[in-house]
């Protein structure tokens, strides 16, 4: 039970940390390191499936497949929020451009009249 609490609070802390420093060089580097470690872990666990099982047991989350699912869920959530933020930033840029066009057009119409 304690380990579950630790896992949940840890993932929330990671999430908040990534979100609040999303553009810092550090976080961008951590993301890449994280991805690399993820790939390594993936290869290791495919080669030695029992290893994942024993880690899961030690953490108290049942089978290895369960642990995989939890990790995948946290990863997916991070990804989805990342994409959402990026989308909002892109939208803001487009809106700023459109706003400048609208204002310039209105100003030139005003001058003509």
């Amino acid at each position: 039970m304690i380990i579950q609490f630790v896992l949940i609070s840890l993932s929330i802390v990671i999430l908040l940390y990534f979100l609040s420093n999303k553009s810092s060089i550090k976080v961008r580097a951590y993301k890449k390191i994280g991805m690399f470690l993820f790939m390594c872990a993936f290869i290791v666990f495919v080669l030695y499936p029992e290893m994942l099982n024993s880690i899961a047991k030690r953490l108290g989350v049942g089978r290895g497949a369960d642990l995989l699912l939890y990790v995948f869920f946290v990863g997916f959530l991070l990804f989805a929020i990342n994409v959402y933020i990026k989308f909002k930033e892109q939208q803001d840029l487009i809106y700023r451009l459109a706003r400048q066009i609208a204002i310039l057009e209105a100003q030139s119409n005003e001058r003509e009249n």
Partner: peptide, 14 residues
């Protein structure tokens, strides 16, 4: 009134 026209719909805040 003075008119400023958004080329696309961007929402009330925008």
């Amino acid at each position: 009134a003075a008119l400023v026209r958004h080329p696309i719909n961007m929402g009330q805040g925008a």
